[in-house]
Design a protein around this nucleic acid. Structure first.
Lengths: 158, 158
DNA sequence: CAGTAAATGAGAATAATTCTCATTTATTTA
DNA sequence: TAAATAAATGAGAATTATTCTCATTTACTG
């Protein structure tokens, strides 16, 4: 019985798509697969969206050394699958950006500090890209990227 | 002769509009007028636009203690006339926001690190505010503010 | 499976920001 | 206007965030 349970546990554990995904992501980017990297990626994948550095650190407290966490985050930034930004309350926030075309923006709640992803309508993104074209004409700036952050109250705090 | 020179110097000094403005700003917000506060405001007013914390610090190196500079910046934030944000390269940037209606956005040059103010067309701001109304309907977020940051190359670096 | 290169943990070093407290400056009061 | 009180400052200590160092461990290569 015990053997069976252990077997089942390992089966479930290793077939978890999280683990497979993490390792695949690293392999796909020619980054060696190590425990700290997999642990960090698992948390980022599970979380599905932006997460504060504080939360990431406390989640991984006893699994990954603090210096290693910073190193892993820098590794992920280097291969362009991690975005970092600062909340209006000056909290560092990170988020996986795995595919090229998952363009989106962020909403911050000024009361509870939550950050969420938000996708703007195609119509509006088109209007924004037109505006950026105009900016290029008038200001000579060549715009490559943009970030739009909305600040307000989430439904819980409203 | 010496007396006259001193008089002229003081006349020029005190009639400088910068000084007057700085003192008026502080008085208008019920903040006591002190040398460090006036010095910081002068630099921010002269600069006319966003300035990195590093640049502000080096400009005021021998006039204002570092701890005082942080305190003064916090004072200005508290009375809502200073915005702080972080550049894509993780530099802290501050900017005076004296009037309610000078709403604008920022352009960052990824090459030289320059930050500039940019004002979007009224048409586009209207489109943005419509989009925010839609977000409220679908996501239940109540949006109070927004920041749009454009990232690219300035005319010198393009 | 051994050998080499890369990654990690623990904590030291550095950088950024806030705090402490004795002194100075501004404001209030008589 | 001077004395008394409150607030602000400078200098550096304390705290926090991030990077660096180096001995040890882990991953990749043949």
């Amino acid at each position: 019985m015990r053997i069976i349970l252990i077997y089942l546990f390992r089966l479930i554990h290793y077939s978890s798509s999280m683990v497979k995904n993490s390792e695949k992501i690293l392999a796909d980017h020619n980054v060696s697969i190590t425990n700290p990297r997999v642990f960090v990626l698992e948390v980022l994948l599970e979380n599905k969206g932006p997460i504060t550095l504080d939360e990431l650190q406390s989640t991984l407290k006893n699994k990954v050394a603090k210096s290693t966490l910073y190193r892993v985050l820098n590794d992920l930034k280097k291969i362009n699958i991690l975005d970092e930004f600062t909340s209006p309350e000056n909290q560092t926030v990170v988020e996986l950006s795995l595919s090229e075309n998952d363009h989106h923006h962020h909403v911050f709640c000024t009361n509870c500090g939550e950050v969420e992803d938000i996708t703007l309508s195609e119509v509006f993104e088109k209007q924004l890209s037109d505006e950026i074209t105009n900016i290029h004409k008038t200001s000579k700036y060549l715009i490559k990227e943009h970030t739009l952050e909305l600040i307000g109250l989430c439904s819980d705090c409203d």
